[in-house]
Design a protein around this nucleic acid. Structure first.
Lengths: 201, 201
DNA sequence: TGGAAATTCTATTGATCTATAGAATATTTT
DNA sequence: AAAATATTCTATAGATCAATAGAATTTCCA
């Protein structure tokens, strides 16, 4: 049965269970992973896992949430902060890529397996995700307003493109992340074309 | 047992089986889908499916191949063609996005489920994919050589970024694809920044 | 230290799934 | 139409898996 009250050890072990589940789900997928796999990875027996989750599905939900929360929190700080557009853009790219590195397994699970969650849980995650996208979109709107970005920019498209580009680095663990951050930001601002002499119009 | 020789009906039915498998794998994932699901979708019984595939894994391999082949063929034409860089870039983006729309299910399966294939089959697909990436990289190198793109461009990064961005449009079926093509190409060439007066240096 | 609460284990149930074998039906060919 | 071939079906073996119940063990606290 579940523990009595605020229980430190329980919470720590549960956290460990979530990380184990993240690793196994990331490697084998939700349906390909067995509760035995997860339990073994944290050094307990299959049945014991149900002390921490009432179902395999609940474990998936926790993993997905664990993955995305770090994105969301950091984006909140960036959006609230008082920096010029270029800094916010670079901060977003940095946050996205470092989050993806730090919680690689959980975020992979969030991106690839969340559709196997029941409707209500999926809706909660979706809300977090579209909040994230909207905040990024708003940063682009500020960029347009401040004159850094072109008037004609489709900010919805821009936000989507950034997210897609940042998610596209599969084995990001292996890469020089600061190099990618720099190049992504440069691409977004200036594109790849040969630069002309800069003259204010 | 397998059919005798060049058998038209067999090949047609097998193609139908591949498309059914693509749909079911795309919806439920490889491990979440059952051979019963696939068989039912094509209107036969579970056991009968094994007339067309010797295993569920073989079906996955066929689906993945069916998905990616269209990319690869089109990229070959573009790379072989004799167009200026801008046209090749736009043709690539167009090809990538329309392929993703036309074979949405199979390509989703290729991207998300191919890692569950046995090593040798996975290696074959990987070769196709990195061929694709290299050809795109080469297009960027031509762009630099022709003076359209900056000398300093990291063409490997550029190719990866394009692919990531193009794959990021999940429910592409719903979208105005020509709008996205136009905006992607514009982003890649010019970025989002407010344009300065153009003056040749 | 002794008793209560928390954690893990063992054993099992019922369900589902892949793959195979051989029978039954349909199609093509002679 | 009869024979041969191709396609589908039925039935089942063997394996795995999620989830539960209750016993055993460990940890915590008075």
């Amino acid at each position: 049965m579940a523990p009595e009250s605020n229980n430190n050890r329980y919470q720590q072990q549960r956290q460990q269970a979530i990380r184990s589940a993240a690793a196994v789900f990331a490697e084998k997928g939700f349906h390909g992973a067995s509760t035995k796999d997860i339990a073994e990875r944290m050094g307990i027996k299959q049945g014991s896992l149900y002390y921490y989750f009432k179902s395999k599905e609940e474990a998936l939900g926790e993993v997905c949430h664990y993955g995305i929360e770090v994105y969301v929190d950091r984006m909140q700080s960036i959006a609230d902060s008082d920096q010029p557009f270029e800094s916010k853009l670079m901060a977003t790219v940095t946050s996205h890529l470092t989050s993806y590195r730090e919680r690689n397994e959980a975020l992979k699970v969030h991106n690839d397996e969340r559709l196997y969650l029941p409707e209500d849980k999926r809706a909660t995650l979706k809300k977090l995700g579209s909040n994230y996208r909207q905040q990024l979109e708003h940063i682009f709107e500020e960029g347009v307003a401040s004159g850094v970005l072109r008037e004609s920019l489709d900010c919805h498209f821009a936000a989507q493109a950034v997210i897609g580009m940042c998610n596209g680095w599969g084995d990001i663990i292996q890469l020089d992340i600061y190099d990618i951050i720099q190049k992504c930001t440069d691409l977004l601002l200036n594109g790849f074309r040969e630069r002309r002499k800069e003259t204010r119009q």
